[in-house]
Design a protein around this nucleic acid. Structure first.
Length: 281
DNA sequence: TGCCAGGCATCTA
DNA sequence: TAGATGCATGGC
């Protein structure tokens, strides 16, 4: 970060976190690498540059202005730094197969991303791949989002998306997903689905509410619940997870030690499956 | 050229 | 209700 500015760093306790893996493991599509070890990202109305310096997570705003207390709280929450991963991973390691998955990338932290950002990204994720999802998400922000700083764009507001038609989204090359983005914008802008209302529902009720949006099925809904609404007991099941579960567990079900933490466990399993356990040699 | 990718909606039996 | 199929696109 010295290459940018040495002032006004926000230094957070990032012990144990692996920033590169956490940002690249398929849970967020809002970050890009600026330089060796230096990541740039946006979340809601915020944007930062991030670097890991040993146990310290260093953040800097793109214009190098100071962080206020609310912004500091936002990023502390975003990176889930208030969650005790030593204890969480300790619990998961009680299962031998899960211990092996955690061992492949113990520095993964499940982020707490803004709800609508997460909804849009995982609509884009369906039947796609991580580089392309990131590309589509970047296009969505740069074409239709508000510029926060030069080169940093927020995701478009629901109202903005709701007012678009499919033809206007063509530059994204998002294919059939373009219509679903607009549907999500309309659902949220109209108040038919709101973050506040979802928080008041239990997991299954919130899942059903999200699945009421055209283009949102169980997989996308569960990703939104886990990554965008902080539901740690929700484990999205994609093609990798559906292969990994029976390969790891005799009955194909989560072990008891993962109770309430299935969503976090899922991210370690997902990484293991893609990078080690199930990847063709 | 065909398969695959953090799926979903729609059709059909 | 469960299973099959089409959908857009790009990388390999």
């Amino acid at each position: 970060m010295e290459a940018v500015n040495t002032k006004n760093l926000l230094e957070l306790d990032g012990r144990g976190i692996d920033l590169a893996v956490t940002l690249g493991c398929g849970q967020t599509f809002s970050w890009w690498q600026q330089d060796e070890g230096l990541f740039a990202g946006v979340a809601g109305p915020h944007a930062v540059l991030a670097r890991q310096a040993g146990p310290v997570l260093q953040l800097q705003k793109p214009d190098a202005t100071p962080f206020d207390a609310a912004e500091a709280d936002f990023w502390h929450h975003y990176f889930a730094l208030g969650e005790d991963y030593e204890t969480i991973c300790g619990l998961l390691r009680q299962s031998k197969p899960l211990a092996a998955c955690v061992a492949t990338a113990p520095g993964i932290r499940v982020l707490r991303q803004p709800f609508f950002d997460t909804l849009l990204c995982f609509i884009l994720s369906q039947n796609s791949n991580i580089p392309r999802i990131t590309q589509n998400a970047t296009g969505l922000r740069t074409h239709f989002g508000r510029q926060l700083y030069p080169g940093f764009f927020a995701f478009p507001a629901a109202e903005r998306l709701a007012a678009l038609d499919v033809a206007e989204l063509e530059p994204l090359r998002a294919g059939y997903r373009a219509r679903y983005l607009i549907e999500a914008g309309r659902a949220v802008a109209s108040g038919r689905v709101t973050e506040e209302a979802l928080h008041a529902l239990d997991d299954e009720q919130a899942r059903q509410a999200l699945c009421g949006i055209t283009g949102v099925g169980r997989k996308v809904a569960d990703c939104v619940l886990l990554f965008g609404l902080g539901r740690r007991g929700v484990a999205p099941m994609d093609t990798w997870m559906n292969k990994a579960m029976p390969a790891l567990f005799e009955d194909g079900a989560w072990p008891a030690c993962a109770a309430g933490l299935e969503g976090i466990a899922q991210q370690y399993v997902f990484w293991w499956a893609r990078n080690d356990g199930l990847k063709p040699k």
